[in-house]
Computed example of a mutant assay.
Amino acid sequence: MARRVIRKLVPDHNKIRQSRAIRLFGSLLHDANLWHLNRRSASGAFAVGLFTAFIPIPFQMLVAAAAAIPFRVNLPLSVGLVWVSNPITMPPMFYLCYRLGNWMLAAPPQPFTFELSWQWLVDSVSTIGPSLLLGCLAMGTIASIISYLLIRLLWRQSVVNAWRNRPGSRHS
């Protein structure tokens, strides 16, 4: 059950392999563990993908792919989960991260107005940057750990249920 649900969510591995950005990893993509879907690879992919989704940088998909390779977790799932942070979800996600970072640093909230300029970006890095980055690191870590444990638990429960419901089982 868990495998079928996740398989529907995972992008096609052939499309990912053909992606120009992913091809830069070359022969590292030949590791079969990057494409298998099992409890270890799925839970690890959730951890990598959701942690990366909370990193406030462009090209998060490349970072997720680069992290999936040494951890030997499902690469398509890792890359796909980065889209949890998308143009619609980013503002509330990063605002909550900023507020968490403020709380962790015991810093007062800074007045915030958005302006599309280089100067605004430089000024914001010094004023809201520390709180935002600490909050993103904390939220990414929390999301990573919870998703890893939850996927392992759900996958195991799915296997137990399938085992119990098989033909000829005492529990049928």
Rank of each mutant, 00 (worst) to 15 (best):
M1P: 13
M1I: 09
R3E: 11
R4S: 15
I6V: 13
I6R: 07
N14I: 14
N14M: 14
K15W: 04
K15Q: 14
S19A: 15
S19G: 12
R23S: 13
F25D: 04
F25Q: 13
G26T: 10
L28I: 10
D31P: 00
N33Y: 10
N33R: 14
R40K: 14
R40C: 07
S43K: 02
A45Q: 04
G49P: 09
L50R: 00
F51H: 01
F51V: 08
F51Y: 12
A53Y: 03
A53C: 12
I55C: 09
P58R: 01
P58Q: 05
F59M: 11
M61W: 13
L62I: 10
A64G: 07
A66V: 03
A67E: 06
A67L: 15
N74Y: 05
N74R: 01
L75P: 01
P76E: 11
V79C: 06
V79D: 09
V82R: 06
N86L: 05
T89E: 10
M90E: 09
M90Q: 03
P92S: 02
C97Y: 02
C97Q: 04
Y98T: 03
R99W: 00
L100W: 07
L100N: 07
G101P: 12
M104I: 02
P108Q: 10
P109C: 08
F114L: 04
F114I: 15
E115V: 14
L116A: 10
W118D: 06
W118A: 06
Q119A: 11
S124K: 13
I128E: 00
P130Q: 10
S131G: 03
L134Y: 07
G135I: 01
G135C: 01
C136S: 06
L137S: 05
L137F: 08
L137A: 11
M139C: 07
I142G: 14
I142C: 02
A143W: 13
I145K: 11
I145G: 06
I146E: 00
I146R: 09
S147Y: 05
S147G: 08
S147K: 06
Y148L: 06
L149I: 04
L150R: 12
I151Y: 10
R152N: 10
L153Q: 13
L153F: 11
L154P: 13
W155Q: 05
V159Q: 07
V160F: 04
N165S: 15
R166E: 05
R166T: 04
S172T: 11
